[in-house]
Nucleic acid binder design. Structure first.
Lengths: 343, 343
DNA sequence: TTGAAAGCGATACCAT
DNA sequence: ATGGTATCGCTTTCAA
């Protein structure tokens, strides 16, 4: 049970083989277990490996296997965003779990603006077998680059550019927003505003579009829009803006593009003595923890992150197995309405 | 200027050499530029490489160079913590910058409890040249493992176990806390409480110790302690706890082990009509953005994250250059007091 | 079942 | 300045 600490250089398979009294080939077979080896040799090799504290050299291994056993998760966002948006925490958690099941190592690459070239170099060097990209912004050409590169990849959330060239797992932001509006209308609301997200983010753009489309279809006004940046504070500000605009007092329903902004809005409404849902009904988006803790608990749309991630990993593993030759697939999940007490 | 997309397999140096009409050796030299190559060959190789969209295979390259050009940042924390604690965002930002300057790729490894073995395997496989560990909790044996492994590494924040076996860059939490107490005492405060961090985190433990030590030295009471978890909410709760305890009304100074907790405490004080700093003076810790925005702006201790990171990267690069053979060094930075308006 | 040997794709030494 | 070749550490035929 001893594990000798080798001073300086890591031990090689050759040394293990020598110590075990067998050939490199047999040692390799014994350690990888996908080929028959006599029980005796097997034991000798395993013992030797333990004694030397042997671990295969990754570079050598990937060189011959054409596989590294690790996949990258690329977050093309500023690190402030990455660390403030609960979406990423949740997503990474799910990815880590999914990859663990498949015995793959997760390698996180933060793609700051300036870092992009360096990161691309890393990817082209095939230091990973594939990549999952969680893309939110419109300005990066990552999809094209990855597609050119031929590295198996899956996007979570459609990229603005080159979406047709890569596999994508997405959620139906527009449809979900429409669903939110539907609920408000069914609840008897007629003057429905929205606190939208940033225009340069898919989630912001599509949710706004869905809100507008559904209102238009119902023949209701779709001109009460204020933009936030998904944060609580921006929700408060946007809500005030809506209320203070012409006819803001008529608003009886709000669709907020994130739960955090809904929370901010509820604070503003509360401060003005406007009751939720009696005076104004409100629907949020995400259901990543904050919705159930608002006062009253927030009706919202559940962002199906876990499902998206699971599917993304499935697709990626498939793409890796096929050597990235499969046609780019596209899977869309529909967020589920979670009814609580704000409608 | 064209870059041909190679279908399927990435091109090799051999192909580049052939296309350029030179040998592999010359092609390699031309591309790496550390050796003399005729202008003609140089141009031919560069053109060929561009045409084929060539990038060196990382595995092959690291196999011979014994170097990958990437270093890992290991965060042995739950991902909730990583993504909620601004410390990590700030630290990673600094690391990314520091590594970029040295032309190293940052690879982030999230070491969930269950992931540890897999991660260790990855590290032993030498997929990275070294590692920076930002350790906060007391339960992992990472320092021992990395030390056994012989992988160059630097810890930011001393690990609980095995700290003497690895290079450490730390900040003087206890000294800084003492400094905070000093300021409060100098400001005439005599009944000084603390809102401490979790006992199982270095920062929590050491700051509490420093607070206590300084009070003891001054002959003042050191029994008013409430624990939080560094979050704003916990600061509010802890503050209420302090105030409601026996003699809580006498408190005229508070040292909070994080700015967020200080902020929470200030909310509670405000809610009770207790004025800051007139009735109660308060000193926070971190100065990572929130301190300047509290009302009134918070006097605090600046956590020297950037300096620590810069030094850590320096030490790591040094250790990598020496093949990890240097003696474990230890560098400690002293947080600086930032005077604002709460004392 | 086992071992010898041929690569995997780069770099670097040694001649030329 | 350039080309041939050994080498990095491993997996995987191919014979035996």
């Amino acid at each position: 049970m001893t594990q000798v600490v080798v001073n300086g250089h890591a031990s090689t398979l050759d040394e293990v083989a020598r110590l075990a009294g067998v050939s490199k080939a047999t040692a390799s077979r014994a350690l990888n277990g996908r080929s028959k080896v006599s029980a005796k040799a097997q034991a000798a090799v395993v013992d030797a490996a333990r004694e030397l504290g042997y671990t295969p050299n990754g570079a050598a291994r990937s060189l011959v296997m054409q596989r590294t056993g690790s996949v990258a998760v690329i977050l093309p966002e500023s690190d402030e965003r990455v660390f403030s948006d609960p979406f990423f925490a949740r997503m990474l958690h799910a990815v880590a779990r999914s990859l663990r099941e498949r015995d793959l190592q997760l390698v996180l690459l933060l793609a700051q603006p300036g870092d992009e070239d360096r990161m691309l170099l890393y990817l082209r060097g095939r230091y990973v077998d594939g990549a999952i990209v969680a893309s939110h912004h419109r300005d990066d050409r990552l999809a094209e680059h990855l597609s050119d590169l031929g590295l198996p990849c899956v996007f979570i959330g459609a990229p603005w550019i080159g979406a047709e060239r890569v596999p994508v797992v997405d959620s139906d932001n527009a449809g979900a927003a429409a669903q939110a509006v539907r609920v408000l209308i069914d609840g008897g609301r007629r003057t429905i505003a929205t606190i939208a997200g940033p225009r340069d983010m898919r989630a912001g753009h599509d949710r706004l579009a869905g809100w507008r489309q559904e209102l238009d279809a119902a023949g209701l006004d779709s001109n009460r829009v204020a933009h936030g940046d998904f944060t609580e504070h921006s929700g408060t500000t946007a809500c005030a803006e809506l209320l203070d605009a012409d006819g803001g007092g008529d608003i009886d329903g709000i669709f907020a593009a994130s739960d955090l902004m809904a929370l901010g809005a509820m604070r503003e409404l509360g401060a003005r003595g406007i009751r939720v849902p009696d005076d104004v009904a409100i629907v949020g988006y995400d259901d990543l923890g904050v919705a159930e803790r608002t006062q009253p608990p927030l009706t919202t749309l559940r962002n199906p992150i876990d499902q998206m991630v699971t599917e993304a990993v499935r697709l990626l593993v498939e793409a890796i197995a096929q050597g990235g030759r499969g046609a780019p697939r596209r899977v869309v999940f529909v967020p589920e309405l979670v009814r609580r007490d704000t409608v």
